[in-house]
Simulated assay, not measured.
Amino acid sequence: MTAWIDGRAATREDAVAAAASLLAGARSPVFAGLCAEAASVQAAFDLARTIGASLDPAAGSALYADLGALASGGAMTTTPAEARGRADVVLALGAAPWASDILTELATDGPVRGRASGRPRAVLALGGPGAGSVQHVAYPAGEAGLAAAIGLLRGLVAGRVAGPHPLADLATRLRDALYGVILYDPAETGALGAEMLNGLVKDLNETTRCFALPLGDLHQGRAVAQIAAWSTGQGPRVGFGRGTPEHDPWRFDAGRQAAAGEADAALWLAALPTPLPAWTRTVPTVALLGAPKGDEAQVVIGVGVPGEAFGAALWHPRRAAIAWHAVDGPQPVPGPAAAILADLQARLASPAEKPFPAKNPTTNPERSASC
């Protein structure tokens, strides 16, 4: 097992012991990154519950742009497979969809199921590139930005904005679609854009069929959201400082906690490639990495890359679900991060090895509550 302590090579046993010691002495540990297969993310939630840590995935900002809109008003979404089979109109919002395989696949053929079967598929773009290999009709987002353009388009579709406008033709195309799909990246649209988008989709469904299709992120964020839901019944930014899971997207933002001095230890889980944020240099950190160099944190332990070193359950963008990614035979590389996390939990759950610090009655109660 490849491992380092303070930049010096160490045995796996010594590195795990050092990681356990670092976490055991923390009052407000935070687990972040969470870019790994489902088993390791689940193990991170279990360990967080054991030691009273909070969690924040690397995909947190993009996830909460969508989760906030979902919580406030719901959403009407579809899957890539349904979009390929049924959509006669596809609207790509912003630049991100043009870097995805999904849009390329949607542009290659037309719908084969449902009312739109046999019709040509129109690809439209709002605020995205005006040129490219995919034939499409482009509309400008305007100086106000993408979120404002989505809100204006919603007003045009619902008839709340009248008169000639550059986006009036786009509104007509969406109203005339038999099965419209709006492809977007929540990280690009932001929370306001996602809220406007969900409202636009609902308005269109008053007279036709239209669905949102969010792009998956590179950091397993969609999988983390599902694991958080079945583990805690809540979103992924949760804290176990008071014994039960408490959900708060602001309080348990790892970057904010580090900047405010609330986090005194961190565990960064990134079995899949995920850059370490700058704040990990200011907090004593244990890093479980799929491709370590050894100087990323105070304690670094190399782990296998899921889907390459071993079979694993990972988010599958085309299926929009957690799916099994098999490998051909065992690989001579480090095992999964879940094994390290289970080892840490066994050490930290033992009263003899985990002396929880006594609560200080003079501690600021607001800082204590953010654990």
Results as ranks from 00 to 15, higher is better:
Ala71Arg: 12
Gly73Lys: 04
Gly73Asn: 05
Gly74Pro: 00
Gly74Lys: 06
Met76Ser: 14
Thr77Asp: 04
Thr78Gly: 10
Glu82Phe: 03
Ala83Trp: 14
Arg84Asn: 07
Gly85Ile: 06
Arg86Ile: 06
Ala87Pro: 09
Val89Gly: 06
Val89Leu: 15
Val90Ser: 11
Val90Phe: 07
Val90Ile: 11
Leu91Val: 09
Leu91Pro: 01
Ala92Asp: 12
Leu93Arg: 03
Gly94Arg: 04
Ala96His: 01
Ala96Glu: 03
Pro97Tyr: 07
Ala99Tyr: 02
Ala99Ile: 04
Ala99Arg: 13
Ala99Lys: 12
Asp101Leu: 15
Ile102Val: 13
Leu103Val: 01
Leu103Ile: 06
Glu105Val: 14
Glu105Phe: 11
Leu106Val: 10
Leu106Lys: 00
Thr108Leu: 14
Thr108Gln: 15
Asp109Lys: 14
Gly110Met: 01
Pro111Cys: 09
Arg113Cys: 12
Gly114Gln: 04
Arg115Glu: 14
Ala116Met: 09
Ser117Asn: 10
Gly118Gln: 03
Gly118Tyr: 00
Gly118Thr: 03
Gly118Arg: 02
Arg121Glu: 12
Arg121Asn: 10
Arg121Cys: 13
Ala122Lys: 15
Ala122Asp: 15
Val123Asn: 09
Ala125Trp: 04
Ala125Gly: 13
Leu126Trp: 02
Gly127Asn: 02
Gly127Val: 06
Gly128Asp: 05
Gly130Trp: 02
Gly130Leu: 09
Ala131Thr: 11
Ala131Gln: 13
Gly132Arg: 01
Gly132Leu: 08
Ser133Cys: 02
Val137Pro: 07
Ala138Val: 02
Tyr139Ile: 05
Gly142His: 02
Gly142Arg: 01
Gly142Asp: 05
Ala144Tyr: 00
Ala144His: 10
Ala147Lys: 06
Ala147Trp: 08
Ala148Leu: 06
Ala148His: 08
Leu152Thr: 15
Arg154Asn: 04
Gly155Leu: 12
Gly155Phe: 00
Val157Asn: 01
Val157Met: 09
Ala158Val: 04
Ala158Asp: 14
Gly159Pro: 11
Arg160Asp: 14
Gly163Cys: 09
Pro164Asn: 07
His165Pro: 09
Leu167Ser: 01
Leu167Tyr: 10
Ala168Pro: 08
Asp169Glu: 14
Leu170Pro: 08
Ala171Gln: 01
Thr172Ser: 15
Leu174Ala: 05
Arg175Ala: 13
Asp176Pro: 00
Asp176Tyr: 09
Tyr179Asp: 15
Gly180Trp: 03
Leu183Thr: 02
Tyr184Phe: 15
Ala187Gln: 11
Ala187Asn: 08
Glu188Asp: 07
Glu188Trp: 08
Glu188Asn: 11
Glu188Lys: 11
Thr189Phe: 04
Gly190Ile: 01
Gly190Lys: 02
Gly190Ser: 03
Gly190Asn: 00
Ala191Lys: 09
Ala191Leu: 12
Leu192Trp: 01
